[in-house]
């Protein structure tokens, strides 16, 4: 006869299984195995089982306590896929949940003009429904940076995954920008930022 005892054992086994899979999900998402960070949905499904999204949500809850989050970047395949297939092809990675403290940003190794160029490029793409020709973006950036640096910077952003360039030299927002940049917050701050705020930001850094 299935007793209350059997039920408790079953619940404990289930709990242990979730804890084990949670640990495994954290390892898969945080440890860099490939050149590009994160893992694909199908890799998570293979390691964590069919209901891996439940584990991912649990991990996201745990990471929230640390100021981090699990980010899902869907692939733009142009095909109509069901949710399961879209998740299979999506990239899962861990990012900061909020903005980076100014001091950490300075230590990130990025040049200030690279950050400025990325801000201008992404805001411009956002204003053009996500795509614009490379020459348009080059003209925009050339108003701020030496023209010989513009092309180098755009190639760098493309290599890092912040931009994507197709064979017709059309730039779109890359997978990495989708994961790391809150475009709403970017346009908001681009429209509202003013001189005293920058001075204050520098003072805090």
């Amino acid at each position: 006869m299935p007793s209350r005892w059997t039920g408790r054992v079953k619940a404990m086994a289930e709990e242990a299984s979730y804890a084990r899979r949670l640990k495994r999900a954290a390892q898969l998402l945080l440890l860099q195995r490939h050149r590009t960070p994160g893992v694909k949905g199908w890799e998570l499904r293979r390691s964590l089982g069919k209901n891996y999204m439940k584990i991912v949500r649990m991990l996201d809850g745990e990471l929230e306590k640390l100021g981090l989050q699990v980010k899902i970047v869907y692939e733009d395949s142009g095909e109509t896929l069901d949710e399961e297939a879209r998740l299979d092809r999506a990239r899962f990675l861990v990012t900061f949940r909020g903005p980076l403290p100014a001091a950490d940003a300075q230590a990130s190794g990025w040049r200030i003009d690279d950050l400025a160029a990325l801000a201008a490029t992404l805001a411009y793409l956002a204003s053009k429904q996500g795509k614009a020709s490379r020459s348009e973006v080059e003209r925009l950036l050339a108003s701020k940076l030496p023209s010989w640096r513009v092309s180098i910077i755009l190639d760098k952003f493309t290599r890092l995954g912040y931009l994507h360039e197709d064979e017709n030299e059309v730039l779109t927002v890359g997978w990495r920008a989708k994961a790391e940049v809150d475009l709403e917050a970017l346009t908001e701050s681009l429209l509202t930022i003013s001189e005293p705020e920058v001075e204050k930001g520098r003072g805090e850094a």
């Binding site: 903005p99 950050l115 801000a119 917050a185 701050s189 681009l190 930022i193």
Partner: peptide
């Protein structure tokens, strides 16, 4: 511009 980006960067 860099400051605007940092506010949106995760």
């Amino acid at each position: 511009l860099a400051e605007a980006f940092l506010k949106a960067w995760r």
